[in-house]
Computed example of a mutant assay.
Amino acid sequence: MPGPERALAAAACLAGLLGVAASAAAAHVAGADSLKTAAQFLLFHAPAILALAGFGAAGLVRPGLSRAAAGLLALGLVLFCGDLALRALAGRALFPMAAPAGGILLMAGWAAGLLCALVPGRR
């Protein structure tokens, strides 16, 4: 697997790991609805990032487009889930508008993933 795809696969696995950890933590923190949301987003997006990295590495889609889509999803998770988790665990925000910015990046990542599905890979 090429380096960028390997890094994205590692990021996806980290998202899955953090999703499980956040789920466990949310079960023990009273009123941790935002932590539960962060955990769900991490767990929902980890397989998508893995798939995009794998499709790009296998040449099933344009690698640059799949890297962009997966990268947008990963960065969106950092901002969105990082902000929600920090609010739940430390009572403060990552930075102003971090969660909305992360949400926009997540939507952009899914839009780029849509392009991956519609634009044929190079042969």
Score class of each variant (00 low, 15 high):
A117R: 02
C13V: 09
P47K: 01
D83V: 07
S66C: 10
A12R: 14
A27M: 06
G91W: 08
F41I: 11
L72T: 08
A11E: 07
L105I: 03
L42T: 00
L35W: 01
A74G: 07
R87C: 04
P63L: 11
F41D: 04
A57G: 09
C81W: 04
A38F: 01
A88F: 07
C13P: 00
L43A: 15
A57C: 04
L35R: 00
G91N: 04
I49R: 11
A70L: 09
L52E: 06
G102A: 12
A25N: 00
A70P: 03
P96L: 12
G59L: 09
K36S: 13
L115A: 15
L84C: 05
A32D: 09
G71T: 07
G3A: 14
R123P: 15
L73K: 07
A111T: 12
L42P: 00
A32K: 02
P4H: 12
P63N: 02
R6I: 11
M107W: 12
G102M: 07
A30D: 14
G59M: 05
A117S: 15
M107C: 12
P96W: 13
L72H: 06
S34F: 05
I104D: 02
L50H: 04
A111F: 11
A7M: 03
L114P: 02
L18T: 12
S23V: 08
S23H: 00
L35F: 03
K36F: 01
A12I: 00
L118S: 09
L86V: 05
A9Q: 15
S66H: 00
W110N: 08
L60R: 15
V29M: 01
A22G: 03
